[in-house]
Design a binder for these strands. Structure first.
Length: 461
RNA sequence: GGCUGCGUGGCAGAACGGUCAUGCAGGGGACUGCAAAUCCCCGUACGUCGGUUCGACUCCGGCCGUAGCCUCCA
């Protein structure tokens, strides 16, 4: 079975084959670092990190770029407000972004291009577009001339003429065509700016991705991803710029877009006040729980974040880690990887819900296994499946000891062990009343004690 | 108004033209001093109206509802 990916360009699943049989190139639009990122901002990194793991397994090498947008008017506004250089803002929020990614188990990308490091490439691409007749300078701006690219609107299935009717933004007088968009804009003296053939200014929003993608991955990439809202205008404009700058060569062969994250059935918005920052969620939830929530639904569907889905994810991980724990010290079998059905689910347009169903089949098999050979094989399968999803990255002991930072009642593992030892003595004397009293005491402190055939064990509730 | 989706059991969430999704919750049983964990068994679905078909949750059409985008936005 060949790998299948849904391509926004053609609105259907298509067999995926990279340009080079042993190398995949992928570019995903990254964050603008002007504030802390919310849960929705992390769906693309988690989804495409998972995809990268699957692609790497199948094709060997994945050259994956996710940019940091560190030039932007929102950054300028934040810097002006604090009276600092934009680098203070962008450094701070880039570091915060990286910290969140690590908590979510997102592996570093091959490339992480920044706009401030690619001004020459951006300017060069704009010059190419001007000399090819696709762009023009006007009043300090440089604009891309949309009518010069007949395929404009193909990705988002839009008719440029119809769009004008619904246009809700005033058309700048220097535009030749109302649909023309900015490649370069002038900066007033108090704003950050860079020298260019058109005066001191800064790049428009869309050109950065075109220029950086070319710089780090080449003119034609295999996969370009991002949030669904970027289809228009951002990705439509990227296609226009890159295709025209490259003499008509295909810019990206497969376009993938993830659905939005809602919160309690509502769109996240500052006015509603329901914006969930990942750095805040991490105060009460392990990163793996957040990651699992993001993988619980198919990436193209909207995802509703509620307390219930978070607690469901936690329980799911309890179950999987529980199976791993019961596998005990059995050494996982060499050379055994995740089951074919699990891989097949992920290779079918990254069907993570179906892959998770396969994972739970494995969990049941693990819990039923009664010999070391089966246990060794299943353990290897579980760990490999977990690795592909970016989950199960800690030991069961660590998971059960820390799975709930929220309910940490201040009790230390040492104190727990003292009580557990006292309970062991009581149990040796069949003093059930004392045994149950200690169990209740621990439970009141957020610790659940269980009696297994191997003795007592505990976990944080 | 234009474009693109979606509507599955108490909740979350997939697949598939005729056979189990899966997880949580719920009911019954096994195990346990009692629990917990685990295992076994069991309910509750496919927005609505038509069409195609031997047979549709799955294909087609109408309707209703709902979400996103239409140059800030993951």
């Amino acid at each position: 079975m060949t790998m299948q990916l849904y391509n926004t360009l053609n609105s259907r699943k298509e067999p995926f084959t990279p340009q080079s049989p042993d190398r995949v190139t992928m570019y995903v639009c990254g964050p603008t670092v002007y504030s802390y990122a919310h849960i929705g901002n992390y769906r693309p990194p988690v989804v495409f990190d998972t995809l990268a793991r699957v692609l790497r397994r199948r094709f060997g090498r994945v050259d994956y770029a996710r940019n940091i947008t560190d030039i932007d008017d929102k950054i300028n506004a934040a810097a002006a407000k604090e009276g600092v250089d934009i680098s203070v803002i962008t450094d701070r929020y880039t570091a915060a972004y990286h910290a969140d990614l690590q908590s979510l188990g997102v592996e570093p990308t091959t490339h992480e291009p920044r706009v401030t490091k690619h001004l020459p490439q951006i300017i060069s691409m704009i010059e190419t577009l001007i000399s090819a007749g696709h762009a023009y300078a006007a009043e300090g701006h440089v604009l891309f001339n949309v009518p010069s690219y007949p395929d404009y609107g193909k990705l988002s299935k839009r008719d440029t003429r119809e769009m004008l009717a619904g246009a809700r933004v005033e058309v700048a007088p220097y535009k030749k065509d109302p649909g023309d968009f900015v490649l370069w804009k002038p900066s007033s003296p108090e704003l950050p700016g860079w020298d260019s053939p058109w005066g001191r200014g800064r790049p428009g929003w869309h050109i950065e991705c075109s220029a950086m993608s070319e710089a780090v991955l080449g003119e034609t990439i295999d996969i370009h991803g991002g949030g669904h809202d970027l289809v228009f205008p951002h990705h439509e404009n990227e296609i226009a710029q890159s295709t025209c700058a490259h003499g008509g060569k295909t810019y990206a062969r497969y376009w993938m877009h993830n659905g939005f994250v809602n919160v309690n059935h509502e769109k996240m918005s500052k006015s509603i006040g329901n914006v969930l920052l990942v750095k805040d969620l991490l105060q009460t939830l392990p990163g793996e729980v957040i990651r699992l929530v993001l993988l619980t639904g198919h990436y193209r569907q909207p995802l509703d974040w509620t307390d219930e889905v978070a607690s469901d994810a936690r329980k799911k991980l309890d179950r999987v880690y529980g199976a791993l724990r019961d596998l005990g010290d059995v050494k996982s079998a060499e050379g055994v990887t995740a089951p074919d059905a699990f891989i097949a689910a992920l290779e079918d347009d990254l069907n993570t819900p179906m892959a998770l169903a396969e994972l739970f089949d494995l969990v049941r098999a693990a819990n039923k296994a009664d010999n070391d050979a089966d246990k060794a094989r299943i353990k290897a399968q579980l760990l490999d499946a977990g690795h592909l999803l970016g989950l199960l990255q800690q030991t069961p002991a660590a998971w059960f000891a820390t799975a709930s930072p929220s309910s940490a009642s201040g009790i230390t593992p040492e104190e727990i062990e003292v009580l557990v030892a006292a309970r062991l003595t009581a149990r040796a004397n069949k003093n059930w009343a004392e045994s149950d009293r200690i169990r209740d005491e621990l439970k009141a402190k957020g610790v659940l004690v269980e009696d297994s055939k191997d003795g007592q064990r505990w976990r944080m509730l």
